[in-house]
Simulated scan of single mutants.
Amino acid sequence: MARKNKHKGGANPNRPRFWGKHAVAAALDNPDRRVLKAWATREAAGFMQFPSEMPVVMAEAADLGRLVPHDAPHQGVVIEVEPLEDQWLGDVLSDAPERATLLVLDQVTDPHNVGAILRSVAAFGAIGIVTQDRHSPPEGGALAKAASGALERVPWVRVVNLARALEEMAEAGFWRIGLAGEAKDELKDALGPARIALVLGAEGPGMRSNIRDHCDALARLPISDSIESLNVSNAAAVALYAASVA
């Protein structure tokens, strides 16, 4: 699906630009990622280990700043890439081990949050994330920077119908837990089955009612009464940790 976002510096909207040492190094190390072009300061080019056949344009830091959004921390390197090939839910489910955690996001659209969530998914050994295609951010520089390399390592499945995807997870033996602040049970009490799908909604509205209906249990995080809720990326990290040690 063509994207109509306008990018600075004449970038092709179907070819995102990544920046920052960790995001760029991970993209270069990913055999499934096609890196089309790079811009770098001489200092950054000296340690980024660009392939010999890759066109690299030497540039000053100020010039790189004009290739990315305002104040983006490019750290001396910018690349233009092709988006990764689509991942299929059936493949992720069929490859899942007997004990596995999958993270499901219901209309979480902020790229910084999704990037941070990808990083937590990688850190706690979950098998991937699932989002609705029309209500999730595209691959982009801000998301890749927040993911700190995890975008290249974590399977990310985009589906048309999230409710149907949850049904497929149930058929594959996943116990679906929706996180909701008003839930009666704490997350530790809802955990137990070896295969878990943690479902988080967007900040503010939370999970949609249809998605709630496709969860086997609702649970809350045991946060202090002094704060109403956690940022969705922080909530995901806490939930993933709890699932990893259950």
Rank of each mutant, 00 (worst) to 15 (best):
P97W: 08
G128M: 13
I79K: 09
F174Q: 01
D86G: 05
G141C: 09
V160L: 14
E152V: 06
E168G: 12
I129M: 11
M169T: 06
H112L: 12
G173T: 00
L166D: 02
S94M: 10
K145W: 15
K145T: 04
A72I: 05
L84Y: 06
L151K: 04
E171K: 11
G125Q: 06
V159C: 11
W88P: 00
P111A: 04
V154A: 05
L89F: 14
R99K: 14
T131I: 15
T109A: 08
A72C: 12
D95K: 13
V114T: 03
S148Q: 06
G90R: 14
D110V: 14
D95F: 06
R164Q: 13
H135Q: 10
A116F: 04
A122H: 06
P97M: 07
L93T: 04
P138E: 07
E80R: 05
I129E: 03
G90V: 15
P111S: 07
N113A: 13
V121T: 08
P83W: 09
P137A: 12
V160R: 14
A142W: 04
A144H: 14
T101L: 09
D86Y: 06
T131D: 01
V108W: 00
D106R: 10
R158L: 09
D110T: 08
A147S: 09
S94I: 11
L93A: 07
V157S: 06
H74S: 07
L105G: 03
V81T: 12
A72T: 09
A116D: 09
R176V: 10
T101M: 08
T101V: 14
E152F: 05
V81G: 15
Q107P: 02
I79F: 07
E152G: 05
T101Y: 00
G149P: 02
Q132S: 15
I177W: 03
L102Q: 01
V92A: 01
V157T: 08
L102E: 00
I129W: 07
E167T: 12
P83A: 10
D106L: 14
E85W: 06
V108G: 01
S148G: 03
E80P: 11
D133C: 11
R119F: 01
W156G: 14
F174A: 04
S136Q: 06
